[in-house]
Design a binder for these strands. Structure first.
Lengths: 165, 165
DNA sequence: CTGTGGCATCACACCGACGTAGTTTCACCA
DNA sequence: TGGTGAAACTACGTCGGTGTGATGCCACAG
């Protein structure tokens, strides 16, 4: 399990120790590498909503958690791999129902519309018994890319990213 | 390498030994499990064209080879797995340029837009070094399903399907 | 307490990948 | 050697997933 203690949106200045409110919509899009329009569309259509503060009409602000960013990055990675958004929706709704929110390490394996979280060893079995298409995504790489993007934008926030699992 | 010696479209009757002209559009769609509209669209947009006889205007007939059916079934399987047609196009154009037409056994592995044909053992390496999404499709299963569909429609054609590799 | 920058929202357009319906034209059978 | 059924073609509609402004509105700075 991995968590970011503090982010750098809102807050009067770049004061150390300030626990910010999360990531704004625009910043989230930047960090994840998607357009604001995509982020907006995905929120409206219930793919991924900001867990810290949802929109409440014009002028309000969405606020995304670090966990949200991770999930968004997973979506983006799957899209880049040529997977349809519809399938991504199925995957996430399934994961949310059948697993905790700790979609963190391990590998995401998609077979049809029933995804799994498995270790590297277990994947081999799946391939040998493999019927149909197997989509394999190592989540560690996703986290790494995201953290690099964050550090790239906020160099001093480096120490705030802590590995707990 | 796997080849079907004779099919069962055209030809006066079900005469044994008759080497037919291939599979008609409608039959091809049935056997592969797609709609005629999809088959038509894919032909028009240069995804997969009938290699035995292309269309020559209204009233003409397309004629698909067994190899065509295999490729069409691969496309269908990838689509069912939630992969966008655009990615499928990239995969096939790459395979046609960098490999022979013997897209037969082995496993199809897609990493970005540069697919590979590898054995079961080699896949393990790819996963360990895995960056990004890996799409794995065992082609043996695809052929099996196609052959079953053909035998299902033409029971007496069973002996005409020969494995040569 | 108020002005305004920034964010959500809206309206419109667009493109790929088809579905549906109607039309044209050939291939094959009688 | 025709007729005709079936296959290719055309036209039009649709839906998801965006891009592109324009507009409305609130949160926060001052």
């Amino acid at each position: 399990m991995i968590s970011l203690v503090a982010s750098r949106d809102g807050g009067t200045t770049l004061t150390e120790g300030k626990v910010a409110a999360g990531f704004s919509g625009k910043r989230t899009a930047e960090l994840v590498g998607i357009t604001y329009r995509q982020l907006d569309y995905w929120a409206r259509t219930d793919l991924i909503r900001p867990s810290l503060a949802d929109a409440q009409g014009s002028g309000s602000r969405r606020s995304y958690s670090y966990q949200d960013l991770l999930e968004l990055k997973v979506v983006k990675t799957l899209l880049d791999a040529g997977i349809r958004l519809e399938m991504v929706r199925d995957v996430f709704s399934y994961l949310r129902e059948n697993l905790g929110a700790d979609v963190a390490s391990a590998n995401l394996v998609i077979n049809g519309s029933s995804p799994l979280l498995v270790s590297g060893e277990e994947i081999i079995d799946l391939i040998h018994k493999g019927q149909g298409v197997l989509n394999v995504l190592p989540l560690a790489g996703v986290k790494e890319e995201l953290d690099n993007a964050i550090i790239d934008l906020f160099p001093s926030a480096e120490d705030r990213i802590q590995a707990t699992g």
